Computed example of a mutant assay.
Amino acid sequence: MSFKSICAVLGVKAWGMKEGKFGLALIEAHGTAAGVFTENLVKAAPIELMRKQIKAGKLEAVIVNSGCANAYTGKRGYADAVAMTEYAGSALGVQPAHTGVASTGVIGRYLDLPLIKRQCETVAPKIDRTPEAEILAAQAIMTTDTIQKHALVEKEGFCIGGITKGSGMIAPNMGTMLAFIYTDAEIGAKPLSDALKLATRRSFNRVVVDGDTSTNDIALCTATGDAGNVKAAEFSAALEECCRALAEQIAKDGEGATKLLQITVTGAKKEDDAEKVARTVIESPLVKTAVYGEDPNWGRVVAAAGRAGVKFDPNAVSLWISDGSKKYPLVKSGEIIADLHAAKKAMHGRKVTFILDLAAGKEQATAWGCDLTERYVEINGRYTT
């Protein structure tokens, strides 16, 4: 527990507990706040509540439960989400209206409010600014995750850090992921919101595990202002760096995954074009299964790029595969130069990277995902039982 934690560095208080699959975490930090939420039409009750509450641009605490998504639960579910903010407000001495709420777990089931109230009352007296506190909070929000996910970015004069959970039902536009990010920078609500939206677009929205988009996705960022004023551009770049670190951990921990898959698309006319191609390739089941089988069937990458709805000259593209240390050329300006033995060797490790140059411009984008394995089917075939 000697790692640098956001609790220790930023003075954020946290704690968590887990009882079987039902967990609860509390995080306390007062400041300016912003949020981004799932784009799924079916939004969980906590999302509906937070879309309203975040308009005040302020948070004092967050309460998070795992094991039940409180999604597709109607008016009762919304009232239960409100009750969770009241439980946290009472236990921590903060305003419920300035308390964030998030849930993750099975869709279509009601919360066990007595359990959540008891857990909240157990956790609240223990919240602390220690690495242990952060670890317990990160563990409490996990569902099918196999690892905790933390990130801390330290810049001259300020820091940004956060925890997240996410393993399955992951697709662009966020997917079964919860992220709670904190900074000691002083920044207004509008620039904070703008920075979070941009960082999310370039990180969480470019993670694909299985192509599904959850009902419960949420990322909240709170700025305490303890470190003083920070230039908006400098802050935005640091926030993006933090979110990318968390996003890559989500992709690496995809349900049943054995490999992290990264796609970088360069040479696009617009960033949007590069993003579309990267996302299309990263979500291709044929690409993902080829990576799992360590089969250098790189033609699937080019084929997926071609259906992304982006115009480019197929006879001008170049493609490389990398194991993280060395790049191996597969196509150069439309000419096949693949060394399949070298390409297969590059797929043996825990990370496989494709670099695709569209030769159509100067913009680029990166997306992250994972291979698709039999274990993914096993996990999701029995998720509720």
Rank of each mutant, 00 (worst) to 15 (best):
G11F: 08
K18N: 10
A33E: 04
T38F: 07
E48M: 09
Q53I: 03
N65M: 05
K75F: 12
D80R: 04
D80S: 03
A83N: 03
L92I: 11
Q95F: 09
A97M: 11
T99C: 14
T104A: 10
Q119N: 02
K126P: 00
K126T: 11
A133T: 05
L136V: 00
A140C: 01
M142R: 14
T144E: 03
T146W: 03
I147H: 06
A151S: 10
K155W: 04
G157I: 09
K165W: 01
M169T: 02
A179L: 11
L192W: 01
K197G: 06
K197A: 09
T200P: 05
R202K: 10
F204D: 06
D212G: 05
A227S: 13
V230D: 07
A232M: 04
A232R: 05
F235H: 07
A238S: 12
C243M: 15
L246K: 01
L246H: 00
Q249V: 04
I250A: 03
G254K: 06
E255M: 08
T258F: 05
K259Q: 10
A268R: 00
K269L: 13
K269I: 09
K270E: 13
K270F: 10
V277G: 04
A278C: 03
R279M: 09
I282L: 05
K288A: 08
D295E: 14
P296G: 04
W298M: 04
R300T: 01
G306I: 00
R307A: 13
V317K: 02
K326T: 15
I337E: 10
L340Y: 09
A346W: 03
T353F: 02
L356T: 02
A360R: 07
A360D: 14
G369Q: 02
G369E: 03
L372M: 15
E374G: 15
E374F: 11
